[in-house]
Amino acid sequence: MLQTDGRQTTGMHVGQTLDKARSRVWRPPFPGWKKPSGLLGVVLVSSLPIFSVFLLWEVVAQLNWVSASLLAPPSTALSVAVTYFTSGEIFPHLGSSLERGGIGLALAIAVGIPLGLIIGFVKSFSRALSPVIEFLRQLPPLAMLPVFLLFLGLGIRSQVAIVLWAALWPILLNTISGAQNVDVRLVKAARTLGAGRRHLFFKVALPSALPTTMTGIRLGASYAFLVLVAAEMIGADSGIGYLILNNQYIFKIPEMYAAILILAGFGIVLNYSLLWIEKVLIPWKGRG
């Protein structure tokens, strides 16, 4: 049997369980504290920690506890980030990162889902292919970059290849496990209702696997994001990853931090969009 990435999924599960436990029983952090109510209260509570981090960062930088050649205050970084957008300077970089990441992720989805469904659905396939998959997925994407560079050269093709490589495995493995763990009762029911093997594949296995597949896509997207930034630092002449490293080379420290902040924002937007897509596509998740 093929396993999904244990560390990642378990980690997420523990987090989710903790969140649930926290939301069920709410204890005041100190006596006399009232539970925040209303939108304003919720926003205040959830933004307090992040605000504190920025405040600390600002103080450390402004008081020159750390040299300005190493650390720029977030206020400066933010205003530089805004200028990046107003001047339009960021868009070519954002565009090429989006292009590489988008194409790579789309290819990983286009390959991973059909392949995963077939491997998971046909028992002999999963038995035959699991050793190969287990071997290939152990190869870290960044270790594959020299190979891709060798074959595909500097530029978009090797960047897309590495994103594809990083995103493919979680999508493939999660789809396989989703197709393998279809509820036996649903298969039995479908068969007694007259479903043949083709119907079982398209009308039972495919929708059953979707929630697990979607988790794979979210994992794949975050791997793709990490790998893309690193790859852009090594073998590209544009992209957010390139911009960060290049700013460091030419001692544009505030610009470097600005690019890092933009990158973080990009990641947050990506994650929330995927969560939203998941909600729209799989409204039954967790309620089956």
Binding site: D183, R185, L186, K188, A189, A190, R191, T192, L193, G194, K203, V204, P207, L210, I282, W284, R287, G288
Partner: peptide, 19 residues
């Protein structure tokens, strides 16, 4: 010789398709 709609089963746990 096999399952089929002319001798359909109603299961204890409903076995409805959640999607």
């Amino acid at each position: 010789e096999g399952p089929g709609p002319d001798h359909v089963v109603i299961f204890q746990q409903y076995a409805l398709f959640p999607w």
